[in-house]
Design a protein around this nucleic acid. Structure first.
Lengths: 154, 154
DNA sequence: CTAATTACTTTGCTTCTCAAAATATTTTCT
DNA sequence: AGAAAATATTTTGAGAAGCAAAGTAATTAG
């Protein structure tokens, strides 16, 4: 018989695969089907207020160079507006266009639906359990990340 | 104040980014640093018994062609053994080499540690709650996937 | 025993990624 | 002020990962 650790592990791995597949498929079938999942996640990271390249790149964990090529395409497709910062002209400000914000909101609502389905029939206390489990998992990652930064140990 | 739906959503999105980053960093610093995350996940999908190409490709949601190139590299690096099936020579059987199994177990133990950190202080009932939440989320995805397959609706 | 099916590989192409070099702007330090 | 350092971004070169479609090999069906 499988322990709950193993069950949860398998569920997480499968969920991980599922989430990407579903998001990709949903995107392909939406009116924003000229966006890849990666591009959608860039829009998601930018959010609804102007941001800098370094800032967004850090959030989604890619190099600024990688983000540049991604933004090039998103500007050409008219999802993103790019302009130099007024105050300090070294900075580039990227923000969502009207179309970009629309795509953002559609994706956002997909996420909301997904999470609502998850917590739907849970009581308030059960929700607490879920949130705390997720927070604990994130805490684990932060610690792990710090350890790895300091010294190798897988 | 943020509702629990939004909190969980944000936690999941951040966890998603974290998981890949940590796995990648941990791998880079391990003795199996000639493996990419994608390759590690192929090893993970193959598991400890021989499998066919189509089978594994389906599990990790890539085309068989994509898997072929991945397996080519893994065979060259000696993590995977590839041979024609005895019974039906159309099939290819892929299985982990000794080195492949070692890498598999190291990654597996990383996953175990991760999940243990997550469920550590949970009671038996809380474990149930977590498992049920995850299952519910997966159920939602399966349904969503089916709907999209049938007809477009993001 | 040909035709269809099944399982896989190859090919051509795009996207995503990084590291390192290049460019532009601002800040710091004589 | 003017050279040097620092900061923010873009460009370049190259590899990894993905797909669709064409090609190959083996088996099954008619």
């Amino acid at each position: 018989m499988k322990g709950s650790v193993q069950v949860i592990n398998e569920l997480l791995v499968e969920l991980f695969n599922d989430i990407l597949t579903i998001e990709k498929t949903a995107l392909q079938n939406s009116k924003f089907n000229d966006l890849s999942i990666t591009e959608m996640h860039v829009l998601e990271a930018i959010g609804l207020t102007p941001r800098t390249m370094t800032d967004v790149a850090g959030q989604i964990r890619v190099t600024v160079g990688t983000l540049t090529t991604s933004i090039n395409r998103l500007v050409k497709k008219e999802y993103v507006i790019r302009k130099r910062s007024e105050g300090d002209r070294r900075f580039v400000e990227i923000e969502l266009s009207h179309k970009g914000k629309l795509a953002y909101r559609v994706h956002e609502s997909f996420h909301q639906t997904m999470v609502k389905a998850m917590v739907d029939k849970l009581s308030g206390e059960d929700n607490e359990v879920l949130i705390n489990s997720l927070k604990r998992l994130m805490q684990f990652f932060k610690e792990q990340y710090r350890l790895i930064e300091e010294k190798s140990n897988m």
